[in-house]
């Protein structure tokens, strides 16, 4: 079974973001970029499926600017066999990315597609679900456990208040939550080897997909700053303040 894994280049999760002075967007100039953390978990899961003998080939795909090839090389260093880069400098929203991925699914016919549940820049949490709808495939979102069993996959999902397990027919779409696995680090020899693995470059036009979205970003602002309050000296003072000043007790 072939496994397709989608990755996204985003701002490194440790970086404190800055809003541009003209409020047009977040400032990404000279900011450290990395693979989206949920995508790292997706790559790890795909590679583990290969190590278990469930997957025969792992194909990594990304939609983004030329620099996004760095994240594909990371995926290759972590164990993906080959990569597809759909190059665009436009801001590709979830629907456009899902349409492009649907074309790749049509071409590659994977048994399983693994994606991160959301990217930590736009926080949309949409692409996997949209891809499932467009390909007419079932979805197991927010996965904390994935078990392939014959022609089915059992996915345990992190839902509000607990866990839900569902069974899906294959092929299927899975999106990863935090507890699914702990991604490995790429080793230096693997990073060297990854440079020689095949990486195809395509454009949205090759797939006949229009990237432009009907949603426009009007403004980006910093959230209202919360001011620190006072330090209290004792439990008694705390209770007094909560009762008489904040009136929440």
């Amino acid at each position: 079974m072939k496994v397709l894994v989608a990755v996204k280049r985003v701002i490194d999760y440790n970086v404190k973001i800055r809003v541009k002075a003209d409020h047009s967007d977040v400032d990404l100039t000279n900011v450290k970029m990395a693979m989206n953390p949920f995508c790292e978990i997706a790559v790890e899961e795909a590679v583990r499926l290969k190590e278990k003998g469930v997957a025969t080939e792992v194909v990594a795909v990304t939609v983004g600017p030329k620099a996004a090839q760095e994240q594909l090389r990371t995926a290759l260093a972590l164990g993906a066999d080959r990569a597809i880069h759909i190059e665009t400098d436009e801001r590709a929203e979830s629907l456009a990315v899902a349409k492009l991925l649907a074309k790749v699914v049509e071409e590659e016919q994977p048994g399983l597609v693994v994606l991160g549940k959301q990217a930590i820049d736009t926080d949309n949490n949409q692409t996997g679900q949209m891809l499932a709808a467009l390909t007419g495939l079932p979805q197991g979102t927010f996965a904390s456990e994935v078990a392939v069993d014959g022609d089915k996959v059992h996915v345990t999902r992190e839902i509000d208040g607990g866990l839900q397990t569902i069974a899906l027919t294959l092929p299927a779409i899975v999106t990863t939550d935090l507890r699914l696995n702990e991604p490995r680090y790429a080793k230096l020899p693997d990073i060297m080897k990854a440079k020689k693995k095949p990486l195809d470059v395509k454009t949205p036009a090759d797939y006949g997909v229009e990237v432009a979205s009907k949603v426009s970003l009007l403004k980006v602002e910093s959230p209202a700053e919360r001011k620190g309050g006072v330090k209290v000296a004792s439990v008694d003072e705390l209770i007094d303040k909560l009762k008489n000043e904040a009136k929440v007790l």
Binding site: I11, V26, D123, S216, K219, V220, E221, S222, P223
Partner: peptide
């Protein structure tokens, strides 16, 4: 909210 609530986007 975007970027984990570290920015607020107005979208149309």
């Amino acid at each position: 909210p975007i970027y984990a609530g570290n920015a607020i986007a107005t979208v149309k």
